[in-house]
Nucleic acid binder design. Structure first.
Lengths: 128, 128
DNA sequence: GTGTCATATGCGCTTCTGTGCATATGATAC
DNA sequence: GTATCATATGCACAGAAGCGCATATGACAC
């Protein structure tokens, strides 16, 4: 079985569909700035129900934009570091375009208040 | 009545939703290469029903990505030349990413066969 | 084992989107 | 006026997507 050209076209479309949602743009925007975040930080920042954020993260992951890993009880998320240059360019263009939005400036401010303290990349404080 | 920040966020989302469809990516891709096309050229190139292409062009227009104008019986379309730099960058990134797709190489070939002859930008041949 | 915290997911519901068909509109030629 | 060509659109239907609620899972502490 070989990878047909369709695979990559589908990936592009999953990516674009994933980006075509306000909540997911906000999430991607946060991840672009902070390179890794756990779910509770995103929940606190976006002020949306946990299940909603979780669902959207799942979609971003299925689209290949985001990867996650577990650290204790926390799930961490970052933009997939293995994204192709061109995929990354799409994400960057969307973020650049979204950067001016009032919502995102507000999110950025709230994120600073809700970031869990980290030591060498590891979250050290215990409470969400 | 003033333009709220929401307007521009909505525009971004309309744009992203408009781009999140295979047919519309193909159309945008063609318009990026040729700068202006009429509906019948796109229909012939994509080999899709006329009403389908027409609908998708309508969506691209509503999203502010495309503008159209009439020349006799023909409707011409081009990427909106007044797109902001950042909006244009998003489109460009998507096109660059889509460029490698087999579908688009095929479309580009078919378009060459179906382009109506032009003199100074005006379509001169009468038949679709 | 129990309890708790962080996160994910199944289900029902509603809303949005794309498609196909038929038909309408708009411009031109006669 | 009629006929024809190019394009748009109303409608019905099917499938997808997002939401809210409740609940499940997974890791840890005890």
């Amino acid at each position: 079985m070989h990878r047909s050209a369709y695979d990559t076209m589908d990936k592009l479309l999953r990516m674009l569909k994933a980006l075509a949602d306000p909540t997911r743009v906000r999430i991607i925007q946060l991840l672009q700035k902070r390179d890794e975040l756990c779910v509770c930080e995103i929940v606190d920042t976006l002020q949306l129900p946990q299940y909603s954020v979780s669902r959207h993260l799942g979609i971003l992951k299925a689209a290949g934009l985001v990867v996650d890993w577990r650290q204790g009880k926390w799930m961490h998320h970052r933009l997939d570091p293995d994204l192709s240059k061109q995929d990354r360019a799409v994400v960057a263009a969307v973020c650049a375009r979204a950067d001016a939005e009032a919502v995102h400036r507000q999110d950025a401010r709230r994120l600073r208040q809700h970031l869990r303290p980290r030591v060498k990349g590891e979250v050290v404080e215990r409470k969400c």
